[in-house]
Amino acid sequence: MKKNMRLYKMGVFFRKFILYFILLFFALLWLIPFFFLVMGSFKSTSELFQVPFRWLPKHFDFDNYINMFQQIPFLRYLKNTLIIVFFSVVGALISNSLIAYGFSRLRWPGRDKVFMIVLATMILPYQVTMIPLYLMFTKMHWVGTFLPLIVPQFFGNAFYIFLLRQFLTGVPKEITESSRIDGANEFEIFLKVIMPISKPALASVAIMAFIRAWNDFLGPLVFLGSDRLYTLSLAASMLKSNYDPNWDLLLPLGVVMVLPVLLLFFVLQKYFIQGITMSGIKG
């Protein structure tokens, strides 16, 4: 009996060890591209192309980074990106909170049927609307401005509506009842009662909208047109498509583009995870 118990315990330990080993192996594998990105950003172009491959650069100096700031209009691209990001986040917060409120806490005929349409637009590939939107925005003389990327953000997004509606459905009815009796109108209740308690869900939406706008590539590629308006992502892809791309500038640019997102993640991790699980679960 005792011997059996010991064997069993050894088995449990062994199984745990194997599972842990598998995870550790993949986790390290997952980090290697990041390690390469950071190390590569310090390498010169000739070092990058050197055979055999070396993990570490010869020198750790910031020449590549300084060159990047001097040789490409980094600050202009950053400014462009931030303008789009800012309006995307503001637009997403204002429109989706209003819309989700209308879909969750107010009753009107046909509401749930209309909400099914909202959900259906989630599976609509962007490619279907992209061409007519391009033609429409061309006629409106919006192509070559930030407007095609910013304005639609003020009219709601199915994912964010869904996420906020999930949250608002969970808020008990009693919370708004007293202000209703006090004679507050619907907009006041929305603004003064519902918005303050929705902060965690709004934070998730803000972060998702930020990441989406910061990382977007197809939108800027189709709508921006001139070099003057390029975002960081678009500028990086254009630099890469040169006949002889300056890899010693591109990899530092990559590091600088990843860094803010990672910092944001480590500070606000909770809201990231919450946003993804709330939009994913029972979708």
Partner: peptide
């Protein structure tokens, strides 16, 4: 309430029709 509800989702309705 119904009137308010539709007012609140109006941005989505406009966006859905236009975009």
């Amino acid at each position: 309430e119904a009137k308010n509800g539709i007012l609140f989702v109006l941005p989505w309705i406009i966006g859905f029709l236009g975009f």
